[in-house]
Design a binder for these strands. Structure first.
Lengths: 220, 220
DNA sequence: GTATGATTTAAATGAACGTTTGAATTATTA
DNA sequence: TAATAATTCAAACGTTCATTTAAATCATAC
């Protein structure tokens, strides 16, 4: 029953953390809904924070592995050429979409949790969380840069930050603004396809030479 | 001393909510740091949630007003033509940047709070919060659509969602990933300029006719 | 100066929190 | 079956929380 208890706690915690946030979710909520004893969390995870760590790792690790695997496939196929930007965007985005949106409807909720981590947990835990994305961001930065050599490295990283933001935000808020005038149908695949178009164009945007207002433009 | 007390509470609450999140910040933290009595929050704001509402409104309202004012200026200048997409992006983004990043270094922290609101507070309060952006999103959607008539309204709204995500995410996480390999200089103006380039290209991205994998492509 | 209303204060209330404890129960091994 | 370890359990711990209360203080107008 041990593994059963652990998994029931993880599943329930994941859902409740995402729905109500980390501080607002009590161990009593989790254990009661999971049908396990209150003390089980401290026994299996050492405490509330330990539970959060395992919830995050369990969810993030396979996504980042899939991303890296797809990236390696693309790079192998491209040989010495740069991988097209759109394919890189796809390799980065789809592991959260195609793989999950169908099998695991909890992903959008999970993204809500991710979006809040950095301010809801203490500094050490936050650093641990960010570190999980280190390799993926490095590898994709390099790959993007190869196809966008006119950008400097910092610009590439900023654009990746924007890409991640678009992705996270659309999963977080996607459901809240649907009544804004459009149809309230929001097929995950459709919105992800739109995201890929948006982000590919964004990543490929031309660099703008700095134009200081009032100093003049096109100085060269 | 009344106005003084209210403002001290609002200022302190804004900072602490942003740093530690809404549930994790106690009224004791706020009142102690503000140098006012614990009961003052309930006296002036009716409770913790009432305080949050005023914190949010005080910060969001002037930004949205500035956005709408700039939009109207642009539309007046454009006459019967559509406002160029980049100018719309600028009008939407800069009220958070130019106006604030210089005068008010608390903006990035505030964005962290905004990013978490929808999951940290209960449904009614969340709805109230979202409603503050209703007019702005509607007006800008229409303006964007006028310049991008080949997109349908839903697509425009999705792309605005991505734009907002890029903006919020870069303010939220911008400081955390700087050690990723680039220089650790991150001038707010530079990153916002990069954001505008990214988002303008994203908003202007071509529509892709749906290509269903395995069914065939370019069927017509 | 005195009365009236607004604000501040200290103290207390009751509920909810994460965590601990030690006994009871279950599973594993010999 | 007996012994040992792993897990579950109910109960309690001490702390912190938002909120309330009623007295004290302040400002303002008569």
């Amino acid at each position: 029953m041990a593994a059963d208890t652990k998994e029931r706690i993880l599943d329930t915690a994941e859902r409740l953390f995402a729905d109500h946030g980390f501080p607002a979710t009590s161990l009593r909520d989790i254990t009661q809904e999971a049908g396990v004893n209150l003390a089980a969390v401290n026994y299996h995870f050492g405490g509330k924070e330990g539970l959060l760590v395992e919830v995050l790792e369990r969810k993030i690790a396979p996504v980042n592995e899939k991303r890296l695997a797809q990236l390696e496939e693309l790079e192998a196929a491209a040989g010495s050429d740069a991988v097209p930007t759109e394919q890189l965007v796809r390799a980065f985005v789809t592991p959260l979409c195609e793989k999950w949106c169908k099998q695991d409807p909890s992903v959008p909720k999970f993204m809500k949790l991710v979006g809040r981590i950095h301010a809801e947990v203490d500094h050490d835990l936050r650093a641990k969380f960010i570190k999980q994305f280190d390799t993926v961001l490095h590898r994709f930065s390099s790959a993007f840069h190869r196809g966008l050599p006119h950008l400097d490295a910092t610009e590439v990283q900023w654009r990746m930050l924007f890409l991640v933001g678009s992705m996270a935000h659309s999963m977080t808020w996607g459901g809240s603004f649907v009544a804004l005038g459009g149809r309230d149908r929001h097929d995950p695949e459709e919105i992800f396809e739109a995201l890929i178009q948006f982000a590919t164009a964004g990543m490929s945007a031309p660099v703008l030479e700095p134009v200081a207002v009032g100093i003049g433009r096109g100085s060269r």
